[in-house]
Design a protein around this nucleic acid. Sequence first.
RNA 1: GUGAGUGUAGCCCAGAGGCCUAAGGCGCCAGGUUGUGGCCCUGGAUAUCGUGGGUUCAAAUCCCACCACUCACCCCA
Length: 433
Amino acid sequence: MRYPSWERLETKLYQAPRGIVDTLPGEMAYWRFIEQKAASVSALYGFERIDTPTFEETGLFVHSVGEETDIVTKEMYTFNDRSGKSMTLRPEGTAPVCRAYLEHGMGNLPQPVKLYYLADIFRYERPQAGRLRQFHQFGCETIGDADPALDAEMIDLAWQFCKTLGLSRLELKLNSIGCKKCRPAFIAALKGYYQKHADRLCRDCKLRLERNTLRLLDCKQDACQPLTRQAPRNRDYLCPECAGHFSHLQHYLEILGLPFRLEDRLVRGLDYYTRTVFEIQPEGGSSQSTIAGGGRYDDLIETLGGRPTPAVGFASGIERLILNLKKEAVAVPPLPAPHIFLASLGEPAKEKALRLAADLRKKGFAVLGPLDRSLKAQMRLANTLGVRYTVIIGEEEVKAGTVQLREMAAARQATVPVKEIENIIRSGDLASL
RNA sequence: GUGAGUGUAGCCCAGAGGCCUAAGGCGCCAGGUUGUGGCCCUGGAUAUCGUGGGUUCAAAUCCCACCACUCACCCCA
């Protein structure tokens, strides 16, 4: 470790770790808005909130997300705790919820169990637009029933959520990737097809051919595009059960009026998905602009040691939502700002102002001041902070037991008794004085 | 992990080897007489020119390394 000079030794400026950011007060209105919408929309569909820990035993993620996935092989923040157990900062939200479902015997509750979460997620990736190492997801899980109506409900929830945020130019992409019974046949067909054209594949795809055959469909390289277009379609290889599920789902989505688009090449990067997969993207967005994504994971609970328990879910990235709210210039409701600034002149007045501030806060007003500055400076501050009212107390007011109450925007001001402040502000009656 | 670009005050940025003990704008602080904001005017504070090394008589300006940021790939939210 090098230091620029000895003076800097003690005053080194720390920076937040790469890809890890502060959320500053100026951004908070977006966050509150989204969190509030997430809670209210979830409630409309009967979801209850669950908060799971920030980290879990590493094995939970390895066994659920899949040993071969990018997340597990190169993106997890993994560390040993003091007893030597391997722990991992959660790289996704579904596995912890399933763990909690099992750990708390939620299989004994009326099914399905519907849970939502707002959680921070950690993935060690190279930061990019809309991609951070610590980010936040709003997610929902419906556990305990395979009815395609629940898939439709989940997609509807995700869609309505984005809509009520004010996002308008969205696309809904849908596919079915089958189940453990019918998927092997499809993968075999896919492999067979691509092997015939192996010489024309890009470098990455040659690797995918062995490692992660499904992902071949996802390749964006121009060279692979023509091949992909002719490739076998998953939908043509679904078993009767999966095909039936999928067609019911589409029917339900039509009933709900959701404008989905079948996307033969939609494949998701987590191993636990079965049957339904879907993504919501801004119009014309590329794969890394996905705003929400999810699907069905009928085998996951069983994989984690539970009874066979079907489930569907989705997650949405909050930072990406904010990005799109800004892109579409959606106005979010401003956060409440302080209401009253107390300005004072001289020590006796300052003491009185201090008491008055405490008093007004007890009555529910957000109060700022007093500060040891000139009246002019205090007024200037009150103005830039945008308070509705300024209360001015000087020597005269201390003697008289009154106060100058000024309504900033209207530049109206009156001498009022201290006891009257609350009433006048509540009734907005300053004008009549 | 790969590739490209960028890095000057809290923010936006001028500056392209010596005239830089670094300009401007926003913001911040204070004043424009006696107890009052928003406009205007005046003044002030704030810059190890990302960090370290090198080239040079001379470097914010050139070179190298590192770090960070941005964008793209990979992959996902």
